[in-house]
Write a protein that binds this DNA or RNA. Structure first.
Lengths: 138, 138
DNA sequence: GTCTGTGCAAATTGTTTGCACGCAA
DNA sequence: TTGCGTGCAAACAATTTGCACAGAC
């Protein structure tokens, strides 16, 4: 990370914890992960740092699951799948996310598309294996 | 719509307003649209009906922009682009949104994907034309 | 010493819910 | 008459913010 601001041990810890996780934690998840190691850490600090890291491009907000924003420090372009049953957010690493058709239509319409930001919704493997029915989509 | 519950004039109005709009309004947007015609309409009613229509599959929540859920009564599978600058939610009707590679990876991993709920992020035409810089994605 | 980062708690905001009443069946 | 739908306001939950102090430079 390129600290565009003054160095802070806690900011670094938040970033490191996010980088170390592949579960795309929420602000509160990070808070609970770090609290044991930083007993005086406050939730507001986690929110404030996440916000500034997102603004700086070091972190991406990859989903909002049940009202909670979920974050990712792995900013290389890749898609995410959000499980409609358990709320898990999975990485879908791939070189090309959208189809030729989609790219062409976007091009024709003059849209810019962020290659890091495709979100899919569905069921993760465990939920599918456990026999959870597909939610109400055809 | 197939009213699975007792008929209600307001529920119908909410659904109709959603169907008539292509802007993917939020609950509050719908409330303000309908309030002049239904002076005693309450915001809670809009939320309650949207929730039950989503549960019934008649409406889809297609995005969460700046903390507000955005809805769509056009449930045929299509993708959406969320403008990172102005928050507009655009329809991207197309037969295939995700790349072959993406579909294959999802298939290999045994994931179910809801074809109605693909979300892309970027810039809409007006924001791009007005010269807003691409947000921090490479 | 200066100025940014933080803890804490209060404020804000989108959404949900309890309750008494209204309206569709 | 029965019971779901609604208005209203209070309750909730995620996030933001004001303020005084701590810590990086």
């Amino acid at each position: 990370m390129e600290p565009a601001q003054r160095f802070s041990r806690k900011r670094q810890a938040i970033y490191d914890a996010l980088m170390a996780s592949h579960a795309h934690p929420s602000a509160e998840d990070l808070y609970h992960t770090l609290k044991p190691h930083y007993p005086d850490l406050s939730l507001g600090t986690v929110y404030r740092n996440l916000k500034s890291m997102v603004a700086g491009g070091d972190v991406v907000c990859v989903a909002n699951v049940e009202g909670k924003d979920r974050f990712d420090a792995h900013v290389e372009p890749h898609a995410h799948l959000v499980c409609r049953n358990c709320g898990a957010v999975l990485d879908l690493p791939m070189t090309q996310v959208i189809s030729e058709e989609c790219a062409r239509i976007a091009e024709e319409r003059g849209l810019s598309i962020d290659p890091r930001s495709l979100r899919l919704f569905g069921l993760c493997i465990s939920c599918k294996d456990r026999g959870f029915p597909d939610p109400i989509w055809q």
